[in-house]
Structure formats: C-alpha cells, structure tokens
Design a protein around this nucleic acid. Sequence first.
DNA 1: GAGCCGTGGTT
DNA 2: TAACCAAGGCT
Length: 374
Amino acid sequence: MASPAPTRKHADAADNRIAADLLGWYDANHRELPWRMPPRELAKGLRPDPYRVWLSEIMLQQTTVEAVKPYFRAFLEKWPDVSALASAETEDVMKAWAGLGYYSRARNLKLCAETVAALPGGQFPETEDGLRALPGIGPYTAAAIASIAFMRPAAVVDGNVERVVTRLFSISTPLPEAKPEIRAHVERMLAVARPGDFAQAMMDLGATICTPRRPRCMLCPLRADCSAIVNGDPELYPVKPPKADKPMRRGAAFVAVTPDGSVLLRKRLGKGLLGGMTEVPTTGWTSRIDGATDTDSAPFPAQWRRAGSINHVFTHFSLDLEVFRADVASRTALDGHFWSAADELNGEALPTVMKKVIEAAIPGAMKRAHQGKS
DNA sequence: GAGCCGTGGTT
DNA sequence: TAACCAAGGCT
C-alpha cells in the first residue's frame, strides 16, 4: 500500500503564508525537548538521530510529553542505539516500559529494533513506506520519522494537526470522516524546505496555543488566517462522535507476603490487556465478589484477610479490585508463579494497576522498594 | 470501520 | 467530579 504522495499540492498564497508564519513562530517559541534537534542546530547542518526520533515517537503515541521524558532518558541510557535495544532481553524492555501504558508498544518496539538491526546496514528505512512496514509504526509515525529524521516532505497528521486544521478551515465534518480533507490541507501547506520543523511546529502549536479547550487565540501566529475565529468558536472543532460509556468490572487480587516482604507474582501472557506484564494473582475481572466465597479462588489456601480495595480506569472499562493479603512463613514454590524480594518490586514489570494493588496490601511497599534501589 | 489497548493531567 | 483527551496502532 503506497502512502499518499509526499508532494506539495496546489499550494496557494494563503498556504504559503500559513507555513511561513508557523515556522517563524516555531523558530522563536519551539519547546526544548530531549529528542528534538532545534532549528538553530539544524541550520548548522546537524541532523537528528533516527533512533531517538523513532523511540520518542513510539513513546509519544497517546502519551503526554511530560510522561515520556523520564522514560526516554532511561531507555537512551540503557540502550543508546537500535543495535543495543535489539540485543536486549524483552523482559528488561517490559520492566523499563512499566507505567507508561499501551504495552503492545513495548513489545513492538523490541520487534522493530530487531527487524531494523537485521537489515543490511542495520539502519532505519528513510521512506514512509519502508517505515510503515515496521511493527508499531503506522501512518502517523511513519510520516513523523520520515519528515523529522530524514527531511522528507511527508504529511504528518496527529491529533494536534487535526485540531489545528479543522479550526483553520472550519471543517465541520466529524472525525474520522474528515481525515482525508485534513490530510489534503496539510499537503498543501507543507513547508517542503523544512518538513520536520513544519510537523513539529504544528504539534507545538496544538499543544501550547491551539489547545482542545480554551485555546490561546490571541497568541496564535495563524489567527489572521483562522476561519474558526471569524466564523465562531474554535472550541467547536474538531467535531467528534460521542464516546461509549465504560462498563464496570470487578475482581479480587491476592497479595501473599513473607516476613521479609517478598511478594508472590506471575506473568500475563499474550498480546491482550497488559500482555507480557507482571501481576499479582487475581480472579477474573468480571466475576462477582460474593462475600465469604471470595477467597475460594485464591492462589493457595491461607488466612486471606481483606486489605482494602482499589479502582483503576482502563481505556474501555473501569475496574474495582478487592485486595486480600496473606502473611506466609516462607517463599513456597507455586507453579507458574515467582517471588519478588521487597527491594526488587519496583524493578518488576508491574503496570500501575498492580502497583496500586500492592500498595493497598503493603502500605509504602513500592516507595520503599524505590528508595532501596536508589 | 470499530473495538481493543494504560495512564495521568486538566477542566 | 466526571468527562475529556494526549505526537496511534493493531486486528
């Protein structure tokens, strides 16, 4: 499948003006980000490291800049290039990703690194199509890497660009139906000479000025060309269909603790929810909690005592877990499970929901483990 | 196309 | 507070 042609189409005076105004604003107001090569460095002929661009783009999928920063630094420290990441243990990658969410990204990150490292030359492909063929790289990420790392005039369309463009042109067509129209506008405005900066400028504008709510239109470099400002309320765009409400799921979690603070854990298999991550033993997450029979489904018979409850909101459901704790004498072997020492807990591939569970059963456990490591 | 897939910040 | 939503991709 060929990507849309990376050529600039039918640009008129307004398109040229928008691109120029946007780049001028970016030169003076761009954010300094750990993975970004600023315009002043690009002007000296320096070029961004494609590995860092790729790593940051994967991490930034549906994830805020502030959440990504510490993970980006940690990954770069552990695995400074694609070859190092390709050689890493998948389990170590999952541990390093723990807490960032959307864990299929971490699995695909490792797969992608292995694929790239095995290519002749061991470097990232430089075209949208070549990038798009790699695991975890879709239309947006392929365009972003092609433009930012390889100076290709690709149409980068993410949530920021959708918001900026629908406001600029008062596009009332709801998403995702409006996507082709949005892409057409971006292809016209594209600054061919500085494709990477154009893409990042659109995203910076969307993140800092053209925000989802209460946009700072008075500070916007494009306000003179913005149709939504003239026609009405920029906040009305983009138009999106209503979201389905989240159902509630319930279950029980079982935290077994030894006198020295070791905790019984197990691995989640497959590619589904939290696939490849570590968890405390739990019941299924649709089962009813039924009073005295709660602990029938515990991993082993013991004096399970209720230690509290936690709630966690996933993308498409909300979860209430009753947390039970049993204090046991020793680290008894249990098939399919393993024990993690108190000072190792924070290094495990525990998703946030499981850190909440452990914290509920052993107040301060995750914090102590963290301090013990540092 | 639509459902699945985390988490934390903002309003 | 509940809703919204962030540099999306996969099936």
